Simulated scan of single mutants.
Amino acid sequence: MADASQTASEFRGESRDDRPDPATAAFLGHRNLLFTVAYELLGSAADAEDVLQETWLRWANVDLTTVRAQRAYLVRITTRQALIRLRTLGRRRESYIGPWLPEPLLTTPDVAEDIELADSVSMAMLLVLETLTPTERAVFVLREVFDIAYDDIAEAVDKTPAAVRQIAHRARTHVAARRPRGPISPAQTRNALAAFQRAIETGDLQTLFDILAPDVVLLGDGGGVKQAALSPVMGAESVVDVLGRIAAVASLQRAQVNGYPALIVRMDGEIDTVIAVRIDDGVITGLYAVRNPQKLSHMWHETTLRR
């Protein structure tokens, strides 16, 4: 077993002759993929990073001559560690103050170019995935997003391939009933968000009402640290009342968040809130406002996601 200092240097891709050993090279080559898997399963970048550390500690002790496919093997380790953490997080979220929202990521431009990847990490989809059981979530993500073979998924979740196929079917049906109606391109989201931003900044209430669905829902995540509604704000009138208070005290900036355009709300130059949207049939049906400071650390630098 490597000592702590050696393990830390290897995790950064270093070795004594400044060249990564085969295990380190393989791990680093798949690191962005593994982070994406963990993030989609957990909805938390901080927890995904912890899962990657656990994955590395286990991978560093694997005999590579016994590994048939390194990508599948690494994904299997990551999935198992993420499932352990996901079950723990589920208990923590039961005592979370107010609505819980996924941790937003400032993503690189290429994420938006991969429509399927962008859709899978969008705030709206991550909230849909929250309604699945941990095993259903893992099976759905691995199969639908990363196209992992059923046999490999079965090993990752300790089920038979036949059981995994049944779980995948059940999860697809569940997600299809809850995901946004019809595909929404980043361009459509960008246009709607631009109109939304202008309406807030100019106080154009009529345009706001035109952009928002009558039954729009606003979820605010302050985590008990920042002020936010402790229950969903429902209906266009109530949502407009909340939004109308923003322009007077904040500046709005558009950014690429979780693969889609979103708004960053700044107070005195500091990031205060990240607002993502869900669009159905051309109007905004969901607004997701993350204010918990502990969830905004990945908004200061771009995160690379991979499939």
Rank of each mutant, 00 (worst) to 15 (best):
A4E: 15
S9E: 13
S9A: 15
E10S: 14
F11G: 03
R12V: 09
D18L: 15
D21K: 11
F27N: 03
L33Q: 07
V37F: 03
A38N: 03
A46Y: 08
A48M: 04
D50L: 09
D50K: 15
Q53H: 13
A60R: 09
Q70C: 06
R80N: 14
G90T: 13
R91L: 11
R93L: 08
E94V: 15
S95Q: 11
P102T: 02
T107E: 01
A112D: 11
E116W: 09
A118T: 06
M123D: 02
L126W: 00
L127P: 06
V128G: 05
T131S: 13
T131V: 06
R137Y: 00
A138S: 01
R143A: 08
I148L: 14
D151V: 15
D151Q: 14
K159F: 10
T160V: 10
A163Q: 12
R165N: 13
T173A: 13
A177L: 13
R178F: 09
S185Y: 10
P186C: 12
Q188L: 07
L193C: 11
I200V: 03
T202W: 06
T202D: 11
D204T: 11
L208T: 01
D210H: 09
D210L: 09
D210E: 12
D221F: 02
K226L: 12
E237R: 15
A247L: 03
Q253D: 11
I264L: 09
V265W: 01
I271K: 05
I275K: 04
I275N: 05
A276N: 05
V277E: 03
D280C: 05
I284R: 00
I284V: 05
L287C: 02
Y288R: 03
V290N: 00
N292M: 07
Q294K: 15
L296D: 00
S297K: 11
W300P: 05
W300A: 11
H301V: 12
